[in-house]
Write a protein that binds this DNA or RNA. Structure first.
Length: 597
RNA sequence: GGUCGCGUAGCUCAGCUGGAUAGAGCAACGCCCUUCUAAGGCGUCGGUCAUAGGUUCGAAUCCUAUCGCGAUCACCA
């Protein structure tokens, strides 16, 4: 039990003894005391004035006296207006540090057999072009959220639905067969996804040229796009694909393999992974059965042309198409089909979709439809809806070539990290392999932290220059503090100091150290909140605050020069646990920490 | 036009289950390395929390309206 909980109960008891009234846990407002006042925790007494029938100050003094007398943790108090600032004893803080010290992954709860199963879908790429900055945000958030949910005692299954079919893939295929000269990743040395993406661009280039020519002959833009031979050919290819044409299928399989190989490299570098991958080519027909079932049960209706619709007027929404007149599926149908397969594979208790906020409406509808179709988790499915990533110049536009490629981006940050690490000169004795590894950790740390510190729901601006910054609220700043603590611990070990398992509670530690312990314990709450709100950014901002606070502590006290052995040990243990929380917090974000940098 | 989201310092962002004088970083200008990693610390400068009402002991936070920005409302995925 932490100090806040203990005090909360003590205050409830105090109110009962002093004023003879019952209050519940939520009515006791205990918060962290503001820096400019003395004390650690502050009780807001305004809510109790009706019970005490006294002035705020008098009520606060009464409760303060009661707590000092009746609890062992409250040492002193002061009152400012309706705020009762409580000072916790040094020994109580050391006991708290002891319990953190005893817990390996402090703040995290392991899942057991009875834990709910949470499935998280993220990434969900198309196979016609490489991953870009938007996917990076998706992947980082999805992976971080998976870690956060797991740390809150859930069984987590990470999944990816790959959109491997459709007209866009046919465009790449067509362009490759027309202009490709049998190029392969091996012959060109290009990553497979980039190679395929290049042909998608090539298609667009030739198609545009065609349009221009046709329009020069007097056609309108619409007429031209309808008459374009290239586009017609692409459509024909799609039909052939759907009819299982062996040649088209073989090409499709070949090119998708290239892309998967490329994606695997990117995922690996990014540090994300999946437990189960679904392919749309497998699931896109599955939804039909479910829709027909819903049609039979009267949830949906058929129009004269044979198309099937859901009427969501009762939910305040419009009608939504589920099957085209020709019986083929639309996006919504596919998501229903995927849901069906997933539920057959896993006993899902909660489904989380990590998908951009431009699809808010889609998931609102999907939730209703899945619920109607009898999926127990449909109603409460979570659309983890994140905002768009924009550049300082505005949105990314493929037409203007401003799309930021994921592979290039990662390579750039690692390269710059290597330059900076080498420049500083602390790694001179390290081998090139070690330096490469540190550069990788630091570079990716900068990128990941830059993206994850922002509230996922909001649109964000991605400034390439700032993303590789190493000062201020950045990943490397935090990693640096971690590395520095490791250095201190190494030096301590060299001096033959052994980290104690049991702490001396009689030591009088400084006010800053006490506040630092308080900040460490906040981590458990932060992890819980992140799981509740499905929002990892809270963890990033928390770790930053903790690190800043530790830096002040580090600056003010020389740990290894401290003469009082007990005090020295406490500071070492405190530093060790700060490092532990940094590492745990960063691991929830999918960011590594270096032992030196 | 309907629906949803967002608007906090010059810039990027915290803070939002209502709590004390609204916080960081970047940028600008100072100070601190014979001291465990200065990728650090300390300070100065910078605000009508979009606007107007409302709810109450108390509102950046909750409610309503207005303005601005964005997304979406496809037989695209």
């Amino acid at each position: 039990m932490n100090i806040e909980q203990t005090l909360n109960e003590a205050v409830q008891k105090a109110i009962e003894d002093l004023y003879g009234q019952q209050v519940n846990e939520a009515q006791v407002q205990l918060g962290q005391t503001k820096r400019e006042f003395e004390g650690h925790l502050t009780l807001v007494v305004f809510p109790f004035l009706k019970l005490s029938r006294k002035k705020p100050e008098d009520t606060a003094v009464e409760i303060g006296n009661y707590l000092v007398k009746n609890t062992s943790v409250v040492e002193d108090f002061n009152v400012i207006k309706g705020f009762l600032n409580l000072t916790i004893s040094s020994s109580a803080w050391i006991s708290v540090l002891q319990s953190v010290h005893d817990t390996p992954r402090y703040g995290c709860v392991e899942a057991d057999d009875n834990s709910p199963l949470v499935m998280i879908e993220y990434s969900s790429p198309n196979t016609n072009k490489p991953l870009h900055l938007g996917h990076v945000r998706n992947n980082l958030l999805g992976h971080a959220l998976s870690e956060v949910m797991a740390a809150n005692g859930n069984k987590v299954v990470k999944t990816n639905i790959v959109n491997d079919r459709g007209i866009h893939i046919c465009k790449s295929m067509l362009a490759w067969s027309k202009y490709g000269h049998n190029e392969t990743p091996e012959t060109t040395g290009k990553k497979g996804d980039h190679l395929v993406g290049d042909y998608y661009v090539a298609f667009d280039k030739h198609y545009k040229a065609e349009l221009k020519e046709l329009m020069a002959q007097g056609m309108s833009e619409e007429e031209a796009s309808a008459a374009s031979p290239l586009m017609q050919e692409a459509r024909e290819m799609l039909v052939k694909w759907e009819n299982n044409d062996p040649e088209v299928r073989a090409l499709w399989k070949q090119m998708n393999e290239w892309v998967y190989q490329g994606f695997d490299d990117t995922y690996k570098k990014m540090g994300v992974s999946f437990d189960k991958i679904y392919y749309e080519s497998d699931t896109y027909l599955e939804g039909k059965d479910k829709v027909m079932e819903g049609l039979d049960k009267g949830f949906f209706f058929k129009k004269e042309d044979g198309s099937v619709w859901a009427d969501l007027a009762n939910e305040g929404l419009d009608q939504k198409l589920l099957l085209r007149a020709d019986g083929t599926s639309v996006y919504m149908t596919q998501d229903i089909g995927t849901a069906k397969l997933r539920f057959a594979d896993y006993p899902i208790d909660k489904m989380i979709y990590v998908v951009g906020n431009e699809q808010n409406y889609h998931f609102q509808v999907l939730s209703i439809l899945l619920d109607k179709l009898g999926f127990s988790w449909g109603k409460d499915l979570v659309h983890f809806s994140y905002g768009m990533v924009e550049l300082p110049e505005g949105k990314m536009k493929s037409r203007e070539g401003t799309v930021v490629d994921a592979d290039d981006l990662m390579e750039d940050v690692i390269k710059i990290a290597r330059e900076v690490c080498t420049e500083v000169g602390r790694l001179d004795e390290c081998s090139t392999e070690e330096i490469d590894e540190i550069a990788r950790i630091v570079g990716l740390g900068a990128l990941k932290y830059f993206i994850l510190k922002v509230d996922a729901r909001k649109n964000m601006t991605f400034n390439p220059k700032e993303s590789i910054d190493f000062n201020g609220n950045t990943g490397p700043f935090i990693q640096y503090t971690y590395a520095r603590i490791q250095s201190v611990l190494r030096k301590a070990a060299e001096q033959g100091l052994e980290i104690p398992t049991t702490l001396d509670t009689s030591v009088k530690i400084s006010e800053k150290a006490q506040q630092l312990i308080q900040s460490i314990t906040k981590f458990a709450t932060v992890v819980q909140d992140a799981g509740k709100d499905y929002n990892p950014s809270g963890i990033a901002n928390y770790v930053y605050e903790l690190v800043k606070e530790y830096n002040q502590f580090y600056h003010d006290y020389s740990i290894l020069k401290e003469e009082d052995e007990s005090l020295k040990m406490l500071r070492l243990v405190l530093s060790l646990n700060v490092a532990k929380v940094i590492k745990t917090g960063f691991s929830l974000l999918g960011i590594e920490v270096p032992n030196r940098m």
